[in-house]
Amino acid sequence: MPDLNPLSLWRKLLALPNESRAKTLAVAFLVSAVCTVIVSATAVILDPVQQANRRAEQAARMDAMLAAMPDMAALIEHTGGDELETLIIDLRTGEPARDVAPDTLDVEHAFSDPVSTTPLDPERDLAGLGERPDLVPIHVLREDGRLRLVILPVVTQGYQSTIRANLALEGDLQTVAAFSIIEQGETPGLGARIDDPAWQARWRGKRVAGPDGQLRLSVVRGGGTDEFQVEGITGATRTGNAINNGIQFWLGPDGFGPVLERLAKDGR
């Protein structure tokens, strides 16, 4: 009868010559298994703490973005209370989703854990998302019922990471009030310089669409820029292109285009 006692099997394994095939395989397998368990356990156990960190940082960046727009900070101060109004937009219709409470969906979950999505054709999928979540929260700031600020989330596939940003438009929905990167993992020293406030400041005051209503806001490589163009970062062409594509997508017909049209028409 074969000996099945695990302890003696273990001893037998250790007693094998190191170069034997069985021991080589066993050591390789055991080391991988132990390492897998340790790495996975750390990742799972520490995930809640890391997510809390990330959320806190995103909130801080939102605040920083609002603070970078002088009149907006003053306006929020002035109106007081829970300043920004959150609207959950159903991108299939371009209307606010009436049956979803605004505080049940934050931007992070809208993209990481969407309730429903619409698959995108490759040629329309400028932002490289694969599928677009249907419900996305946007933030709106009003003064005396008049639209003052609209903050839209922009998510796009960058060179080596998913870039998440906020694009703030002024009340006329034609002027960029601010652009702020929330999360990115681009090449340090090159693409990662989109984090630089000096670069983000180049967005302020740019116009969104030409007189014909055609979307003209874009990131361009070097050279002269006009009132619609933001100069990209040297050495980070792919990152710049990714942001450009993200802007084209999210301000376009598959993104917030219809929403902005409706907001511009009736200011609701």
Partner: peptide
């Protein structure tokens, strides 16, 4: 107990896991 034929892989696996942690 590290077979010399795979010793570098074993070492690097262990180091990489510790670094990730």
């Amino acid at each position: 107990h590290i077979p010399s034929s795979i010793r570098l892989i074993v070492q690097i696996t262990l180091i990489a896991s510790l670094v990730v942690v």
